[in-house]
Design a binder for these strands. Structure first.
Length: 488
RNA sequence: GGUCUCGUGGCCGAGCGGUUAGGCAGCGGUCUGCAAAACCGUCUACAACGGUUCGAAUCCGUUCGAGACCUCCA
């Protein structure tokens, strides 16, 4: 599939248009995605972003790229509020729960991994933590200071945005003009140390009661939030790499600051392609921890949230997110989920049918052309909804072959099977619905269906319906086809 | 207040200058002991008003509505 690599286009937030993807090093891709701050449980909105980039990662792998995927864990330095006076989020949580900060970090890191694993996200190649890279962050601050783009005040170091803007465009990514930013910024407490309110902290002096702190050339303190991503992406991907992703809400100021830090320390912009995933909305509003407008994955799998009619499996939720483009907002409702669940089952039924199909002399449709549409969709900025629509064309074809209303040649069948399985399982990351002890159940079901078939042959509908209803109560659906019955 | 995005049929959601997106739901058939599934057919669209164009959901303008960012958030 290597020739298909040359046809991938990615929407670059920096330029505002789709650009042909050309990696810095042939066949290799460096991908960095901003991870979570582990001070509470991840909600569904967070998960959508990580699923979006999981799709990107998976498709790049499918195209044959060797991808180094780095996604951080923020375990220090993320302040609770603006003005750089707020408490560290993790430290605050630790104080409230009377725990060590690292106990908080551990608890929610495990939760994060569990949930992403449920959604069948591939783990990143490297998952660095901010606290594990204090030295790298200090080194980067030193470089920025020596290049003249940062200054120290009372043991804290701030990035000098106005000075930086003289040489580099600040606000390029988010499309902001520095004058607007200056006039639009509010006066907040605790900013006396800064030369300008736009300046952001690279290092913060820690008060004596502060729990998480480290020694530095400027005294005891802790790193600013924006710095960790710059330090860790540089360490593992170099000072210039291919793709940087994250949620739309990180575009400003976080990613803007990352660009500034990169330029200020190395003289060049750190990233070629910036990608931003859009938000998941609930009741028309962004899902958000701080406003409480969110649903937790565990509530979803258990069906315990009042906003949901019932429980939904991780694969259904994943399929639901894949039916919308990653750059569009997606509205979350039980009704939409129900529709996705039905569609998901139909897709998976067809996929399971694939190996059981009989081949013919020739194919009644152009199978190669059908497969090509899968690539066309994904090459157009990872357009998963189009891919899904095209897969449903394949579903129709598969069912028609199964009904004897269409034909497929042996070679086309093996090709189609290979590609569909690749796109459904490897690219979209969907899984067949979790079946209960299928290996043990299989012979039992064969026996039960055989008995029912005998009853049907004798026109003993009472017995046959009794078996069908009984199985339905056990969560097993029986479908009667021309060539006998199947169950699922 | 500033910057920006969006407004598609009952619901979710693609498309972004000329073709049926797709899924779910609905309706009519085929099949079936019945049901389910599957298949075939079918109905609802592009917020409003102007403009550009041979042609606009798609480009431009205005209005209305919703949302995001500007402050922690994926």
């Amino acid at each position: 599939m290597s020739e298909r690599k040359n046809e991938l286009f990615i929407y670059n937030s920096l330029s505002g248009q789709k650009e042909k993807f050309v990696p810095i090093h042939k066949n290799f891709v460096g991908l960095y995605v901003c991870g979570p701050t582990v001070y509470s449980n991840v909600h569904l909105g967070n998960c959508r972003t990580f699923m979006s980039f999981d799709l990107v990662y998976r498709y790049l792998l499918h195209l044959g790229y060797k991808v180094r995927y780095v996604r951080n864990i923020t375990d220090v330095g993320h302040l609770e509020s603006d003005g750089d006076t707020g408490e560290d989020k993790i430290a605050k949580r630790a104080r409230l729960e009377q725990l060590e900060p690292m106990e908080i970090v551990q608890e929610y890191t495990i939760d994060f991994h569990d949930v992403l694993n449920e959604f069948n996200n591939l783990p990143p190649s490297i998952e660095p933590t901010a606290t594990g890279h204090i030295i790298e962050q200090i080194e980067m601050i030193k470089e920025i200071i020596s290049n003249g783009y940062a200054y120290e005040v009372n043991g804290s170091v701030y990035f000098d945005v106005l000075k930086f803007n003289e040489k580099f465009p600040y606000g390029e990514l988010s499309g902001r003009k520095i004058e607007d930013l200056i006039s639009g910024s509010r006066d907040l407490d605790g900013q006396e140390e800064k030369r300008n309110s736009l300046d952001f902290a690279l290092w913060k002096n820690a008060s004596s009661e502060h729990i998480m702190k480290w020694p530095s050339p400027w005294g005891i303190g802790f790193p600013g939030w924006h710095l960790e991503c710059s330090a860790m992406s540089t360490k593992y991907l170099g000072d210039h790499f291919d793709i940087h992703g994250g949620g739309m809400d990180l575009k400003f100021p976080h990613h803007e600051c990352e660009i500034a830090q990169g330029c200020a320390s190395t003289g060049k912009s750190p990233v070629n392609y910036w990608m931003h995933g859009n938000m998941l909305t609930l009741n028309g509003r962004k899902m958000s921890k701080s406003t409480g407008n969110s649903i937790l994955p565990k509530e979803m799998f258990a069906g315990t949230n009042d906003q949901l009619e019932k429980a939904y499996s991780p694969s259904v939720v994943r399929f639901f997110t894949m039916q919308a483009h990653y750059r569009s907002t997606l509205d979350f409702t039980s009704e939409a989920l129900n529709a996705s669940e039905k569609g998901f089952e139909r897709l998976m039924d067809a996929v399971s049918l694939l190996p059981k199909l009989n081949s013919s002399e020739s194919s009644s449709i152009d199978v190669q052309a059908l497969i090509a549409t899968f690539y066309t969709a994904m090459n157009d900025d990872f357009n998963a909804p189009i891919l899904v629509a095209n897969l449903f064309d394949a579903v129709k074809f598969i069912n028609s072959v199964n009904d004897g209303k269409a034909t497929v040649s042996a070679s086309d069948l093996s090709l189609l099977t290979k590609e569909i399985q690749a796109f459904v399982f490897n690219v979209l990351g969907l899984k067949l619905s979790e079946k209960i002890e299928e290996s043990k159940l299989e012979p039992v079901m064969d026996l039960v269906l055989e008995l029912r078939q005998q009853a049907r042959a004798n026109k003993d509908w009472t017995t046959s319906d009794q078996i069908r209803d009984g199985l339905a109560n056990a969560g097993i659906t029986v479908k009667d086809g021309k060539d006998g019955s199947v169950w699922r």
